[in-house]
Design a protein around this nucleic acid. Sequence first.
DNA 1: TATTAACACGAAACCGTTTTCGTAACTTTT
DNA 2: AAAAGTTACGAAAACGGTTTCGTGTTAATA
Lengths: 338, 338
Amino acid sequence: MKPKITLKDIARELEVSISTVSKALKNSEEISRDTKDKIQAFAKLYNYKPNNIAVSLKNRRTKNIGVIIPDIVHHFFTTVILGIEKYANAKGYNVLVCVSNEGYEREVINMELLANGSIDGFIMSLSTETQQKSDYNHIKEVTDQGIPMVMFDRVTERIQCDKVVIDDAQGAFLAVKKFVESGKKKIALITTDDYLSVGKARTDGYKKALAHYNIPLEESLILKMPSMEVEATAFDSFFKTQEVDAVLCVNEIFAMHAMRLVHGMNKRIPEDISFIGFTDGLLSKFAMPSLTAIAQHGELMGEEAARMLIEKVETESDEATFTTTVLQPTLIERASTL
Amino acid sequence: MKPKITLKDIARELEVSISTVSKALKNSEEISRDTKDKIQAFAKLYNYKPNNIAVSLKNRRTKNIGVIIPDIVHHFFTTVILGIEKYANAKGYNVLVCVSNEGYEREVINMELLANGSIDGFIMSLSTETQQKSDYNHIKEVTDQGIPMVMFDRVTERIQCDKVVIDDAQGAFLAVKKFVESGKKKIALITTDDYLSVGKARTDGYKKALAHYNIPLEESLILKMPSMEVEATAFDSFFKTQEVDAVLCVNEIFAMHAMRLVHGMNKRIPEDISFIGFTDGLLSKFAMPSLTAIAQHGELMGEEAARMLIEKVETESDEATFTTTVLQPTLIERASTL
DNA sequence: TATTAACACGAAACCGTTTTCGTAACTTTT
DNA sequence: AAAAGTTACGAAAACGGTTTCGTGTTAATA
């Protein structure tokens, strides 16, 4: 076991000062060719690597960006992380991911933890609980300290910062359009309560699309879940009582559950009932029949968020000018629609 | 915008020394009740939080643990992270996740990055490429420096460290047992090349189980993919040429793909062909029919890995005694088997 | 009243870097 | 040969904390 070697070690060994070593390793003009060669060779031999912590403390920059997501098991979020990593790594930044697990408490703790020096900026998506409580003080505190922040997907207008979202309403619109154009009339929506920002936007888009196609809105065709969990009995009674020929679901899980139910009722998909689900994840791809989906372009979203953040991090300008980037969703047609 | 407040700021404001402030905030006995009250009140008022970087530098401990996983989109790994976070957070540790994206290069970079002071220990699972190259120098360097390390799932005997794996062979055995007991005879295996440690173990278990039940091993019933990717044509010709009544797949994706293929050939699942897949993830749950699966207990694995690591981190003992924990998989019966 | 102990606090070193500034020792200029 | 300019390096402060040790003041003891 050979413990890590420091500048001081090199300096002592080579009988020069610490400053000389530091400069030599940075190839400073101040140091003679000879000394530089000697020091660099020695450093390479002993595999010297500067201590990140010390460098961060000195420079007051960590080259780390903190990402807080509600749920790491959810495919969408993982693709966003992929995009963030991709861009950030290319720019020499490291990505620290923390999971709030859809909880307010863990979101606060993780943010405080990272905010105390560990990162140069945040990329985050709100947890369900935070959106319900509508308490954003922990976030405000961070931005008040001047730490750059980018929110994505689950955002709030209560915080002034850069944001990147997809046009959820447009996604719902695309889905309804698809249904209408294949002759469907009784179009249902399975969604969550409105406090989830995305749930609301998608519901709005659904309603707007119906209006656009002159289809009367029937509230009874909208099934709202109180959370992201599937409530089996609610699904059961919904499909028993309602006559529908197309269903738009705000996530894959809802869609999978509904499709199985409908399948059990001996209806054909897509002939009798068509399905479209939000988020083009693994489930959509491998469902039977495969599920037509609205792609959220998570990776792109991540890249864009990282780009915005690093931009802010690297320009010291105090003037706060925040932009919101809206990404356009696309419809991925598969076997669950005509 | 109010920038972060430091000990120095408090000291200046309250006209005491930095040391006094530091001690007061730690409730040291050395400081009088009065002064402590005053300082603590002031600190709370201005929301003082110690700078993590400075504390880490001073203590030479970060209270961070680094996790390197090959793929964040894979459900299994995310559940492991969940387990790690759960245990680590409870112990006051923060979890930094980096993704190698199944690549050797990114694995090396991420490890070097984190190893230079950012973390107290590693939990990792090898990338595919690293296993192929069989080059573990970057890992050896880290362990040589005395940084504690725990490997999980995709491990190598070339590195001396704590490990936690599931008994993959036993998992395969359970699957074959299930098939045999429901009267299946022509049991196929869809797996990856042997360089993937888990692929090999599962194949071994499959063979051992066949032997145990006196079923002749037919190499033609084993379909090997060169990577984790599905090669559609290989699947096609396999199911066209081979007569099978049961299929064990080393991952969900392979199973999904095969089931769809078989479905298209108008065979019934599970009556004509039964299926079992490794890793009990979302796809298994929502497949049609739902997929009988071998649960890997990722969350448990994560907790165990975190427990082992923190144990090592917190005991300074130099004597290296490494243990390997083997978790037992379980069979989750669903509709794809009789 | 002189001595000692307890109390409450400050000075300073330290963690591992970076960076500014000062300065010997040469080299060049006049 | 004295003045000025280079060159090559070191001392020291700084980043924001923690911690050891020393010390002035007061209270208890002899």
